[in-house]
Design a protein around this nucleic acid. Structure first.
Lengths: 335, 335
DNA sequence: CACGATGGTGTGCACGGTCACAGTAGCGAT
DNA sequence: ATCGCTACTGTGACCGTGCACACCATCGTG
């Protein structure tokens, strides 16, 4: 007399409600062609039997999985270090939890994992993909598009504009804003530590900085990092070697800014008196730094919710749109 | 002449290989009763057709989903702030990526989400659950066990020892180690900022501290936080008010230690000269703090890989085991 | 030579849904 | 009375697998 008989199926519900499977199915899928009495009976039967639809059977019949993937095509250590990923992930999970759409987390850091994931996704195991931070030479995006998989990218997808939906912060304008802010503070030898230049965020922030600086721009003021704290530390050291006279630095991520700040302080530069430091992201570390970091806030909450919304639209057959969200300057103590 | 006909099925493969569906199925599932020629033919056919098994059909037939869930039963903002979660998540994803087992991320911070998730999991949509940080009053664990869902918890599951598998760092011994380290440094008025006391990590670290202090223990030296940076800041302020004479503080997480450090510095206490600070976790912020934080390293990599290994075992029908992993003291500049 | 093992293979059914289609009842209009 | 229309309901086929079972050679053995 175990209660571990069998999960109730749609047939059990139909029997309990005195209707047919078809009617139960219609109730489940919100069809309008159901009489009020039948609907009530079915709903009562569902409650009394404790019925929960079998997603696998449903997927088999409809060939839709009703799930989406959060795909990270970065070496794993970046998920580990960069807080932005987890912030995005959180936003997406939150946005999705109300909609009963399961979220699959996929991390593919190596070419062999790229192939594996592509195969898996192309096989129809997920209905759509939220693609995070794809470098330009990464073939995953092209493969997904070739298989008609709905994709929404985070950040402008270099080389695929118009063919794939995306949500991005306005990196260029943000960089312009920060650079102008530093100029207004009276700084004239403003260095920059960029992100990887094969990503849209990396290049666009550099572009904005360059544009805002105008004649003050000089390539000896620019060093490149990879968004890790350590790379910020190294890039700052390199910049100080090349341009000991610099009086400000715009760092393309808060985490790199933390590294840069450590270098500056180790070298005895006072921040912001000797060198002003501006970051990008407004991640958790920004406010906790000493001095607290002036930075450009990215609207991560909106980015993730818009990504989800857009992906669902694309999955419905809409044309992929591109959404650009504004960043905002958060003034603290480092500038 | 579109290539968008239809995904190849096991029948297509069978036809291409000149064998029956059954034989293809046997090859796919590693059955031994297949002749070498048939196996070779099937493998060639799989390659030429680009066949990928339909997971939904397979799950329907076997009533196993071949996926596991990473279930976070915390208010969402903690995922946002606490870096340990993402470190664990990364470890789990890494461990799983080699095994072709998809990982579902579920976040359930409210009672209504708990019910929803429980329903979903109990309906058989995942084969097992990695449960992260369940507070004692959380009914999710009990519900999952009641539905015979294989579960492995992170940290000792208070009240369920023996009934559910778990992987934990040795919190108590770690706390003893840190407390002794502070004693060896000659400190005698050692305060503690604990984690939430309805979690095993929270109580066990307090126990270890208390045991190591012996006669030096005094309840005015203890304040409670919730693992957030802000709570560390507040708890430290409270401790300084109660015991301005304290000369060391053991903080139950690095993030809270960062908050505590900020308070200490704001109050003009020199670290470590006036007050030594010890953390717990060895998360990314520890080495980046000023001064760099002495802390207990938790073996997150091993924790996540052992959790996965253990869960797979339980899913195979093994009895749930408990695994305790050692922590290690990382001496830096704050003690 | 009959026989039972043994290794290999093909086939029907079940898994739990969805969906197209056929069917029915009620009702107003012709 | 017949017809067509509308609102609803039931049914069978099908989605792509795995699995139990039946079957078929082959071969060594008594």
């Amino acid at each position: 007399m175990s209660t571990r008989n069998r999960r109730p199926t749609i047939r059990d519900v139909a029997a309990a409600a005195g209707v047919s499977r078809g009617t139960v199915s219609r109730v489940l899928n919100g069809g309008k062609l159901v009489s009020p009495e039948a609907r009530a009976a079915v709903e009562a039967a569902i409650a009394s039997t404790g019925y929960v639809a079998n997603q696998h059977a449903r997927s088999l019949a409809t060939s839709r999985s009703n799930s989406i993937a959060f795909l990270l095509t970065e070496p794993q250590h970046l998920l580990f270090e960069d807080p932005n990923f987890s912030v995005l992930l959180r936003g997406v999970a939150e946005e999705l939890s109300g909609r009963e759409i399961p979220l699959l987390l996929m991390v593919a850091g190596t070419p062999s994992e790229w192939r594996q994931i592509t195969r898996y996704v192309a096989a129809g195991h997920v209905d759509g993909v939220l693609l995070i931070s794809s470098h330009r030479d990464n073939p995953v995006l092209a493969d997904l598009l070739a298989h008609d998989v709905p994709v929404v990218a985070c950040g402008v997808p270099l080389g695929y504009e118009g063919r794939v939906g995306y949500v991005a912060a306005d990196d260029k304008l943000g960089a312009v804003t920060m650079a102008r802010h530093l100029l207004e503070r009276g700084r004239t030898r403003i260095a920059m530590i960029t992100g990887p230049l094969d990503t849209s965020g990396g290049t666009l922030r550099l572009e904005g900085y360059r544009e805002a600086l105008g004649d003050l721009y000089d390539e000896t003021l620019v060093a490149t990092g990879d968004y890790s704290r350590e790379s910020g530390r190294l890039a700052m050291a390199e910049l100080l070697r090349r341009r000991p006279d610099l009086d400000a630095v715009f760092v393309a991520s808060d985490l790199m800014a933390a590294g840069a700040l450590a270098t500056l302080q180790a070298e005895g530069r006072r921040v912001p008196d000797d060198v002003a430091v501006g970051g990008f992201d407004d991640s958790g570390v920004a406010a906790a730094m000493h001095p607290a970091l002036t930075t450009m806030r990215q609207p991560f909450g909106r980015i993730s919710s818009e990504m989800v919304r857009l992906l669902l639209e694309v999955m419905e057959g809409e044309e992929p749109a591109g959404i650009m969200l504004p960043t905002s300057l958060v003034k603290r103590d480092s500038t």
